[in-house]
Design a protein around this nucleic acid. Structure first.
Lengths: 249, 249
DNA sequence: GGGCCAGTCCCCAGAAATGGGGATTTCAGC
DNA sequence: GCTGAAATCCCCATTTCTGGGGACTGGCCC
């Protein structure tokens, strides 16, 4: 069976999974099939204090997990930090080239090795507005990473992360929970998000100041919020606006 | 040659490419190899310090590009909006399920069809705090998307995006140029994002109204923006805040 | 025709945010 | 012991937003 067929089958199984445990089992099997020993799919947060729900699935040795949590490595683990710098998977051997490794980083990598974790490959996964995350695969210490599996690992990691997003309900909005804005309301909100005042928006759209106020007023009503900031967050969350829209020059 | 071999070869070629034109040629060839006709790699950037040209590589028909620009569709293209809601590639047929399509959205999709663009597949890509974008592949109108190529399209899209980041020099800017907020600034922003007024935040945090104003003032300065809305967008984009934080009840 | 909705415009009063000045304390790092 | 950053507090004036009232047009659907 070709690698891509494996990826497709994996995707179907992930789609069918209905619990984090099932997803973990699928990842465990996939990791082993690719000659890895460990997997770790996680949001990069300080888990002990993070607001739920943050994603974390793995089959790392317990000793390592305890160490990790005790030292609050979520946000500072070098593998996680490196995964914030790229959009495709990378081998851990490239870490030193991607980051300036500090003494502490080296300690962390050493600690992992002592816990039995060998070489690895990490697939970053980011969705704007959500915690940064990644899906890593690692060999048992002493065993090499098999290059020929890495493209598949990239696919499997991405698919698994998206599956986790679904299972954790990170973007669930009830059937008709999504308020709809009119085109004009969205126009106004778009410029408001870019930091324009109502008066400036009026000039940009060629309508009166009062009309802009009116559109934004109604947009707030539709989302049931009273503040421009909340309106913006909701619109970004449900895809009415995107970061690209708002941040682009 | 297996699909994964194609991906590996593509990755090597992208690594070797030394100009956007070369990358475009590689993408054109890859798209055709996957039975697509068009590709479009758009890469929108937000780097307050170093103004970067936005990346746009594509082989769309000129008529469509003109239409797109004339009507200033950039900010509202539904494909771009959807690409911010997921971490894996999606077929355009799923757009309606991912977003509420407005009349204008349907017009855009119609316009694309009239310009000869058929069905497509879009791979989102995001690096927190730095850039977001996507790589799309589309068939000529009337031709179906070949499902069996989509896993490869996912790989090719991701590799191409990362190649564009390299070619546009985005990776050399150093990781930690982006603004960091102090704990207190983040506390204030967190509550501001949830719609609290400065006065309410002061009561919640047990500090004076003026101090809250001060923290938010300095937070705006760090991001180089003048409005609360912009501050919020930047913080969400680079992961300082997440939707989970802000929308959780 | 009547109802509904999007879009446009107008008014007002009060609350909130922004941009400018200041200031002190505490604590970590050199 | 000095420096710098963070956190705290205070004042001012101005702009901007929010919530409350209205009104008129042009489509669309039944």
């Amino acid at each position: 069976m070709g690698l891509v067929q494996i990826a497709e089958e994996f995707a179907q199984q992930v789609d069918a999974a209905s619990s984090p445990d099932e997803l973990a089992a699928l990842l465990d099997a996939a990791a082993r099939a690719m000659d890895f020993r460990f997997f770790a799919l996680t949001h990069h947060v300080d888990l002990p204090r993070a607001p739920q729900p943050a994603v974390r699935l793995h089959n790392y040795p317990l000793g390592w997990v305890d160490y990790f949590d005790e030292h609050r490595l979520g946000p500072c683990d070098p593998v996680h930090r490196a995964s914030h710098l790229t959009s495709v998977g990378f081998r851990w051997t490239r870490l030193a080239a991607m980051l300036d490794l500090t003494t502490r980083d080296r300690d962390i990598l050493h600690g992992a090795r002592r816990a039995g974790i060998g070489d690895g490959f990490t697939v970053p996964a980011h969705v704007p507005g959500e915690s940064a995350g990644s899906c890593s695969f690692a060999t048992a210490d002493g065993r090499p990473v098999r290059e020929e599996w890495l493209p598949l690992a990239q696919l499997v990691g991405a698919i698994a992360f998206e599956g986790a997003r679904r299972l954790w309900g990170l973007r669930e909005l009830g059937p008709d929970q999504r308020p709809k804005l009119t085109d004009r309301q969205r126009d106004c909100l778009y410029w408001a998000a870019r930091g324009k005042s109502d008066w400036e928006i009026a000039r940009i759209l060629g309508i009166s100041h009062d009309t802009v106020i009116q559109h934004l007023k109604q947009a707030r009503e539709r989302y049931g919020v009273g503040k421009r900031t909340q309106l913006l967050v909701h619109a970004l969350f449900d895809g009415t606006l995107t970061f690209v829209d708002v941040l682009r020059r």
